[in-house]
Amino acid sequence: MADTGEGKKEEADYKRLHSFPLIRHTDMPEEMRVEAMELCVTACEKYATNNESAAKMIKEMMDKKFGSSWHVVIGEGFGFEITHEVKNLLYMFFGGSLAVCVWKCS
């Protein structure tokens, strides 16, 4: 019991501590990066349980803001190898367990 309690507490701690967005890799210019990151955060928070909706929202918004053919992957575990247009890639973690990869390739 105590263990699980502690485990929960730790988990809560972890969640609290790791709630911030953490950019792992990006080649976007500063302005775009900030905007994309904020968009990802909003989407992930809005659709906390539905990654598909979040991805859809991000994709649509990015298409609208930066021109078409954006691709978004959101998940807790995945591997990928993509070809993206230069200066249009953002790979970030969010909320301690989500990985978000946003890139443009038309």
Binding site: Y14, R24, G79, F80, H84, S97, L98
Partner: peptide, 22 residues
């Protein structure tokens, strides 16, 4: 348009490590 390849693997432990490091 110039393109680049990028590949990575997202795992729970990788995400965790990244956060801890940060």
């Amino acid at each position: 348009t110039p393109c680049k390849d990028f590949s990575a693997t997202a795992n729970q432990w990788k995400i965790y490590d990244a956060y801890v490091e940060e």
